[in-house]
Design a protein around this nucleic acid. Structure first.
Lengths: 200, 200
DNA sequence: TTGACAGCCACACATAAGGGCGGTATCATG
DNA sequence: CATGATACCGCCCTTATGTGTGGCTGTCAA
């Protein structure tokens, strides 16, 4: 396995250009297309960059094939499906990732977005059922009325952010559960932007 | 604009192969890759097919560029979002289409799949809410327990297919509504394979 | 029965595109 | 201060790939 070493700024730019090309025309660029975009006069320069990206695990390149730049989705273009979120932050630790949801064509964003598998039925009356996937945009603040993913103690749950008196509560959408006051023990991980369910 | 004339079987096969190539490697095939897959000994043969597909509006090809086959999504790879379904069949009439949902990377199938925007709250307790999109796989039969789209009289609704006595009923998931017996006046349009909701 | 189109082949050709090799310069780091 | 990584250039070569021309067969509707 190739490790995922950090990229230099130049490499990030090139990777971004490749991504944009693929996204715009569904066609990876050639060495010369990349080179001319960055003003390189030698194809060797571009090739060196691609090799660096491949070495770091962000792309795969095939020998002697035109445009054969494959973006490694796990590294960049899909959202990890999280089975659980551990205390502190949505760490995206490998052991939490249940798979990858290839949704870059549906929702692409530079911000960090992840998918969370819903546990429990506390939002069932809002149509968010157990085992649904929710796409979550990471942010620490949210507006009243938005559906959010919050970390309560050690557990991540999906709730609706409501105002109550002069404070806020995380309200379930199921009368079996009680609203949870927002306190120091509660932090908002992000906003739910989409729900996806698949029937087997 | 190119019209969308029907494809011959051969052309469908080639289009399918192109799709699969793109899907598998994110890279459209070259003329020779297509040709060798179909046993063609001349690149001219493949080129003629591609030109036919382009003429009929299913792909776009760029001159003098390698692998420059662009799949025309509206023609093939996205699912029309239907606001309503008219009597008879899911006609996919243009006036019913509210947009296109680009989900080919999530759910692709050779069969015809479309997305339907949910009206009403009759399935709300099953987590299918008004304005959700349901992805529907067209089929006239379904199994007990599956969520289906049925045409009842003139109206398309999402229901669950249940058995009752020696017949079948279309059961809502909301006590406000009554199960509907499956009769001659009821036809099944397809099976719900996915639910997608987006928060604004 | 003529014409349009689908489906194929063979061959030649031009250009698109990847790869190799050697060189220069900078910068961080042990 | 040697080493390695990054970041570039130039030149040349080989392979990959699209295009043109011409010709063949069969089907199908006018």
């Amino acid at each position: 396995m190739n490790e995922k070493r950090p990229l230099t700024d130049k490499q990030k730019e090139i990777l971004k250009f490749i991504y944009q090309s693929v996204n715009a025309s569904n066609l990876p660029p050639t060495l010369r297309e990349i080179g001319s975009h960055f003003g390189y006069s030698s194809t060797g320069t571009t090739r060196d960059h691609l090799r660096a990206l491949a070495r770091k695990g962000y792309i795969r390149i095939a020998a002697n094939k035109s445009r054969a730049i494959e973006l490694v989705k796990e590294a960049l273009f899909s959202f990890p499906i999280l089975g659980k979120v551990q205390a502190g932050l949505p760490t995206l630790a490998v052991e939490n990732i249940e798979g990858y949801l290839d949704l870059h064509s549906l929702v692409f964003s530079d911000e960090s977005i992840f998918a969370l598998k819903v546990r429990g039925d506390s939002m069932s009356e809002a149509g968010i059922m157990p085992d649904d996937l929710v796409l979550v945009k990471k942010q620490s603040m949210a507006q009243v009325g938005e559906t959010v993913v919050a970390l309560i103690g050690e557990e991540a749950t999906v709730k609706r952010l409501n105002r109550k008196g002069d404070g806020y509560v995380l309200a379930p959408a199921n009368p079996k559960y009680e609203p949870i006051p927002v306190s120091d023990d509660v932090s908002i991980l992000g906003k739910v932007i989409s729900v996806i369910r698949r029937y087997s």
